[in-house]
Amino acid sequence: MADDNKNAEIPLPALPEGIVKALDLTLISQGAEALVFFSQSHPFIPTHEAITNSPGFSAGYILKYRPPKPYRHALLDAQLTKHRTLSEVRSLYKLMLAGVKVPVFVSVDPRQGIIWMENISGPSLKKWIWGNEEVIDSQTEDEAGRAKLREEKIKGTLLSVGSEISKLHFMDMVHGDLTTSNLVLRNKNEGEMEPVIIDFGLSSQSTLPEDKAVDLYVLERAFVSTHPMHAEEYIGWLLEGYVAGFGRGKKTGVFKVREIMKKLEAVRLRGRKRSMVG
């Protein structure tokens, strides 16, 4: 059912004409709120031998477009588009300055709802784990052997993913939609991978441990639904890296993470939703 619908032709809301004419864009995803396009070309830096000190990205660029929503009152629509576009870009900029691995943002046009950023090329954590599980399962039939291989191949990456998320939360930033698809593994060098956190469309600033716990809980749910066999083990490693990451923040970090983990327990018990009265 779902697949049939995805194949249906959906008319795309139009990007500003100037951009479409000038650049070669490929639509790569259409969410509820934004269209995501790929462009090999940078919006304002041409390729030229004189330009050697420029932040060029060989993996190309992403244009994220929040089209106007005709169902919304025009004033409300303009406000929301501007507000959300800017909030996403501010998060990206702030995180980049702090050294958290996120796509570098290139430019923004808040009135048009356009963000340009670096394309992160690499498998999503989801696909990467699937790939590894497949390899491991083909190598041995023995569960103890497989467990050992998982620890060898997967644990290190999940520790570093947890650590990257801890940097985000340590800065009192909440992602809002942490899933194994929004964590991308970029090839660093010689087969070494580094996790990059993407899609800050729902991100926000929050000092509450509760909001960070919900971020982690949403990610846990994503693990359970996409990697049900070993979800618990994976989450364990990820949280180990997360807690260790906070440990680097000295006393405040240790205090913060203790509060968050306490909240996480509570959120797990009640689920994300409060119980409903009639």
């Binding site: 059912m1 969410g31 509820a32």
Partner: peptide, 8 residues
């Protein structure tokens, strides 16, 4: 959001 999520 829900429609995009479930593909309906």
């Amino acid at each position: 959001r829900a429609m995009a999520h479930v593909g309906s």
